[in-house]
Design a protein around this nucleic acid. Structure first.
Lengths: 236, 236
DNA sequence: TTTTACAAACAGTCCAGTCTGTTTTTAATA
DNA sequence: TATTAAAAACAGACTGGACTGTTTGTAAAA
């Protein structure tokens, strides 16, 4: 906010010479994206303005328009920055660990705690809803999500390992939709009363589904009943 | 849009005299609320403006500000109008029928089809998200939801009839959150590919839960195991 | 005649995008 | 290495437009 950069002492020592401009540029872009995300969280999409972001980042409007020509550019940048921060959080929590050895409960609690329950996720939802009527924004947000989404699919493959991939995908989307809905609920009803219980209930339900869809003991069973519907669980 | 009202022939015949002003007022308010909702669906919360609404309703801005002094007033009005339209849709589908005799699947498919999958629901979500940073809007939307929400609780009581009310509430919120999330998914990813499958999967899962939580045969069982956790279903 | 319903213009604010000008970095050349 | 031209980074003002809330004025109802 009040940290000056560029002119005086900030980068007097750090590596001068090659690619200095590239570094300056990257720093500035990151700073603007962070500011944009902050502003988005604080005042919401409705009253977010580009001057606000520039002020928050402590840079001139000229610098902002140089790096992000339009408001949409700025928003997409903030969105990408958020996606990246999720990657970082995941890396901090699980590193390169194979998710196959992470219990479903642990992973679910992680994504809820570190992603969906944060205000920044609600901010992302605002963007996604705004995309409904802003074609360009929508296309660009979807594009930004392309790679992260397919990487997420891979992670959930590791995590769940259902023999029936379609079932697995359904289960993944179901969980995601549930978390999204919970995020809204938490945001709208200031009290987080039910969410903890719902999360717990879903974990139990999910573990049941997992147990049914993925019978650990016999690998053969995986191919024995392919394409089976997610049917009534008891029956015994 | 081009229907004039008030000045010429619109209400020449209809009952004149007592409460004429009240009727005029109610008509105008309804018209404005409908227009507001239309505009909200079409252009989104971000670019919705009060002049747009007045134009859409085909009335002067003076009339609008007379009935809805501020933009927030207008939005709350639109929200209440939407809630009311849900009541009407429900009444059209189930009348005064006791929901105890309506299969869960039927009811769920109804709310998805007639409420959550509509663009107007996404518009409502936009309002609810905007409420995150607009205290007044939030308070008023929550207030508008007070009565409908408690009525919804009663309906779900009828529908589910879990002996354990806490479990039932959890299940209700879980379903609601899931539907919310699905609505966003459908809105953001133009293709509705997975939603149908997810809905079906949830119905199956839900029926399992219902069967476990509500053992029809022995009413005594209801009190036999109270407060039981929604546990693994198989086990036989 | 007093209140309510409607009409239309107005005032103040503020935003997005553009444009002109200045400084820093880079690359090319001597 | 020193010099210089080009390009990129940054600064800040300006414009055209539009929106919200208000106000003044008129017709209809109570």
């Amino acid at each position: 906010m009040d940290r000056t950069l560029g002119s005086n002492e900030a980068d007097a020592a750090p590596e001068a010479g090659a690619g200095k401009q590239a570094r300056r540029s990257a720093t500035m872009r990151r700073r603007l994206c962070e500011a944009a995300l902050d502003v988005l969280c604080e005042v919401g999409f409705q009253s977010l303005t580009t001057p606000m972001i520039a002020a928050r980042a402590g840079v001139s409007r000229g610098a902002q328009t140089h790096h992000f020509a339009t408001k949409t550019d700025m928003l997409v940048g903030a969105f990408e920055h958020l996606l990246q921060s999720w990657d970082e959080a995941r890396h901090a929590a699980f590193g390169g660990r194979n998710l196959g050895e992470v219990p479903f409960e642990d992973y679910l609690r992680f994504v809820w705690r570190e992603i969906f329950s944060k205000p920044s996720y609600v901010a992302a939802l605002e963007l996604m809803l705004a995309a409904r009527v802003d074609r360009e924004l929508g296309d660009r947000l979807r594009h930004a999500l392309d790679s992260p989404a397919s990487q997420r699919n891979l992670r959930w493959r590791q995590l769940l390992r259902f023999p029936d991939v379609r079932k697995e995908e359904q289960f993944q989307y179901m969980t995601l939709c549930l978390l999204r809905g919970m995020a809204i609920h938490a945001s709208f009803n200031r009290s987080d009363d039910v969410n903890e219980a719902v999360l717990e209930a879903w974990i139990e339900l999910a573990e049941t589904v997992i147990a049914v869809e993925r019978p650990e003991r016999s690998v053969a069973a995986a191919t024995e009943r392919p394409r089976r519907k997610m049917r009534r669980v008891p029956g015994a």
